[in-house]
């Protein structure tokens, strides 16, 4: 029924292009701010103070243990009720906020995992040579942790590209939203396949880049 996938793609490619730009933009913003926030949260998780540590652990568990779509609805509809300051946020900002918070929980786990994966013997050696705890972290632990952290962060970006499709429920201009746009021209099934194809191509290309990055980072192991 109706036009073929190719006809739709050719006729409406600017719409899909704009949707793709939106998707990449939202994913980039979410992962960038998510990384900044996630780094702080991972510090909480690694803290020796039990209360601070608990806050970090609870934060990560709540955000990773509830669906992102639910988080979006809560951040858009209910946060403003609880904290009037969020009334100043637009719909786009509310949805982005939930993407950032969600991403930060995953990034916190990535960073925490990266740091704890560095053998404890490294710390012991550095400290016994008289390095301060801060110096040990910056000069010994982090440079090694970054090798496991970077590829995982890139994978988080790829995952986030798919997660942003939920923002289509709030009519933000990203790939999934093109479906709503074209449905009003009575094109209901073609956009689904086009969108799936675009997601697949983008994630495959990015995955290939990530494995290149992994190989590059592994060179020093040899």
């Amino acid at each position: 029924m109706g036009a073929s996938i190719f006809e739709v793609l050719i006729k409406y490619y600017p719409i899909f292009l704009k949707g793709l730009v939106g998707t990449l933009k939202y994913a980039a913003i979410a992962v960038f701010f998510g990384t900044v926030l996630g780094a702080l949260i991972s510090l909480l998780q690694l803290s020796k103070n039990k209360i601070i540590k608990a806050i970090g652990v609870i934060y990560v568990n709540v955000l990773r243990g509830t669906p992102l779509l639910v988080q979006m609805y809560i951040s858009y509809l209910f946060l403003p009720m609880a904290f009037p300051i969020f009334n100043a946020f637009t719909k786009e900002q509310c949805v982005l906020l939930s993407l950032i918070l969600n991403s930060s929980a995953y990034v916190a786990e990535i960073i925490r995992g990266g740091i704890t994966s560095v053998d404890i013997g490294q710390t012991e050696a550095a400290r016994s040579l008289g390095m301060s705890a801060k110096n040990t972290m910056i000069k010994i632990i982090l440079p090694q942790a970054i090798r496991t952290i970077l590829p995982s962060l890139a994978n988080e970006y790829i995952a986030m590209i798919k997660e942003t499709s939920l923002a289509g429920s709030f009519m933000l201009y990203e790939l999934m939203y093109t479906r709503t746009l074209l449905a009003n021209k009575y094109l209901v099934w073609q956009p689904l396949f086009i969108v799936a194809g675009i997601y697949l191509i983008v994630t495959m290309v990015l995955s290939a880049l990530v494995s290149k990055l992994e190989k590059r980072l592994a060179i020093s192991d040899k």
Binding site: G2, A3, S4, I5, F6, E7, V8, K185, G197
Partner: peptide
């Protein structure tokens, strides 16, 4: 994708 969508003629969806 090309094979999956045999289109007989161009249909204007307007």
């Amino acid at each position: 994708v090309g094979c999956g969508t045999k289109s007989d003629d161009v249909v204007d969806n307007e």
